[in-house]
Design a protein around this nucleic acid. Structure first.
Lengths: 330, 330
DNA sequence: TCTTCCCATAATTTATTCTTATGATCAGTT
DNA sequence: AACTGATCATAAGAATAAATTATGGGAAGA
């Protein structure tokens, strides 16, 4: 395959413009033989003349004339490359591939995306909704820049910052007679009718942990694919379920339900933004975490209280907390 | 200004694809440190990371991701360059800038252009109609590839091939009573009413030469800008003029005139195709001359007889034939 | 903790490309 | 016609750039 060096093309460009070896050489800052040699090599490689010598000016031959506009365009593109790269250099610019778990996405994104678009127009957020295990794998391998999920995130190659904590509430059919006293106790028999998301969702595990000793056996094979579906099922009297506080506020389906808090210490999940420990976007991720934190504190997703129990979120998964189990179970 | 070498970009391309220094190096056929060094230099020049190391794969950073499509496009364009140049290499391809004198152009081109378009679709003929002096200057300086004009072309840096010879006839008003015997003698008093093209046209000089001793003084300030105009003026009885045989055949204005041949040896002009002696298109010019010759022999422009008098065309300019005078006088 | 894998660094060799010096050719001039 | 100045090509040596082999450090996985 025939190809030229950039230097050759620069010399070609100069010579085509100036039409004089000596002056072209001066223009590019070399001596005339240097330029001559490079042009000669180009011609030799193509096995055809690019310039017509003789007379008082050097002229392009037809092959040379074909080449000229191409070479000029190429050189100009090349000269742009530096600034192209700089464009992606400053923080909060370019494409950011963000993963979010399905039980957070619909409640966080409506607040987050407009905020990002308004403050960082140069940032293109590319979203991926998947369960924690998938997001971890994709982030570690570099297909994602970071993801939002529930703690614990236990992968030595990932690091995270907590962005908000999210209490779990109990959702019952509006006309359910069972519950009378508002704070649900962890031993309440109503938990036996708990409905779960399908396997892989961290909220499934978290719900099971809330139930504690009470086994919600009956509902095992009715597991739902999304939280909204689950809420609709509850509204139709198929059982009860756990609903995160952000969903209780934002999901329309919650309007048809009776939402009851748990007795203190309320179970909760702690949501974090996670990224690779050696990510080149470390600073951007920290900034993004800060933004999500601010949104959660004020907007569609809300941070829980002023003095969150630092251990409340871990209670329900304490017995499962070990590194090997995490990738699949969350 | 920041710029990269082609090698660097090739390494970048490979590394971005493969995500592994060692394998990328193998792919481009160098050792790993060589590739490492070039990538490092790119990053150093930009003062920003292009790849994120660590983990089992090397990933593009955001600046790197911005750069990647540009670099790939650039490399592909570069790879095309060779074939681009080859395109203009074969004969009768690309743009050919052809000059023609005004007293030939309208009669030769209708035959020539379709012929060229049919046989050499890759040839773009760019035309320039001007007087011989201009065409010579522009060809010598490289703005034209060649031109069609009347001999003599006496410029040491140009060479030419005769393509056809073209007899001069006398054009008179249709009802002009003067001439009775068909062959016009060079001493005929009718020549005193000769009308001329404006200065610079070679046919002006040629007409003057035909007149010989007879000075067409009266008509000097009525000189016309084109042969057709001249013929119209003759048709309206303003005088007589010389008409080349190709024009007599092709020009509509000739229908309104009485066309009379000269007595042997008939004056004529010899038309040639000329080009730079060191033109890169030498072969193409010779071929083009051949084509014009064929067209003249059969089509709209016709070669004169079987045995053209080799000196007939030079007779009328013999006294002016010297190098210094030619550029202006033809 | 140990091993393995992977990239960076160092020292040296090899290739490339420059510069200076000089030669050949051609256009314009004496 | 021979000279002169200009112009591009060529040659040899010097400088630069980029390759290779050898080696080191650090993170990932067993």
């Amino acid at each position: 395959m025939i190809s030229f060096t950039i230097r050759q093309m620069e010399y070609f460009e100069a010579l085509a413009q100036v039409g004089h070896f000596g002056r072209a050489a001066a223009q590019v800052g070399v001596t005339q033989p240097a330029l001559s040699a490079q042009i000669a090599e180009m011609e030799q490689r193509l096995d055809c003349q690019l310039f017509e010598r003789g007379g008082r000016a050097v002229r392009l031959t037809e092959p040379g004339r074909q080449l000229q506009p191409r070479i000029e365009r190429l050189l100009n593109e090349l000269r742009d490359l530096g600034s192209i790269a700089q464009r992606g250099r400053s923080a909060m610019q370019g494409r950011f591939r963000l993963g979010i778990i399905p039980t957070v996405a619909p409640y966080l994104l409506p607040g987050l995306l407009p905020e990002l678009r308004a403050h960082y127009p140069g940032l293109e957020v590319e979203l991926r909704e998947a369960i924690t295990g998938t997001l971890m794998e994709e982030t570690v391998s570099g297909r994602l820049d970071g993801f939002v999920a529930a703690l614990p995130i236990d992968q030595p190659r990932l690091m995270w910052e907590e962005v908000f904590s999210d209490r779990f509430l109990l959702a019952l059919p509006k006309d359910d007679p069972e519950l009378t006293s508002p704070p649900v106790q962890p031993e309440s028999p109503v938990l036996e009718r708990m409905m779960l998301l399908e396997d892989g969702h961290c909220m499934r595990e978290q719900a099971l942990a809330v139930c504690g000793k009470v086994r919600p056996v009956a509902m095992a094979n009715y597991s739902a694919t999304s939280l909204t579906t689950l809420l609709h099922m509850v509204a139709h009297g198929h059982g009860v379920t756990l609903i995160p506080e952000i969903a209780a506020k934002a999901d329309k389906a919650a309007g048809d339900l009776k939402i009851v808090p748990f007795a203190d210490p309320s179970p909760m999940r702690r949501i974090c933004l996670a990224w690779r420990v050696n990510s080149s976007r470390h600073d951007e991720c920290r900034k993004l975490a800060e933004i999500i934190r601010a949104i959660a504190a004020s907007g569609s997703a809300q941070k829980h209280g002023d003095q969150p129990d630092p251990h409340a979120g871990e209670r329900q998964v304490a017995e499962r907390e070990n590194r090997a189990a995490v990738p699949k179970s969350i």
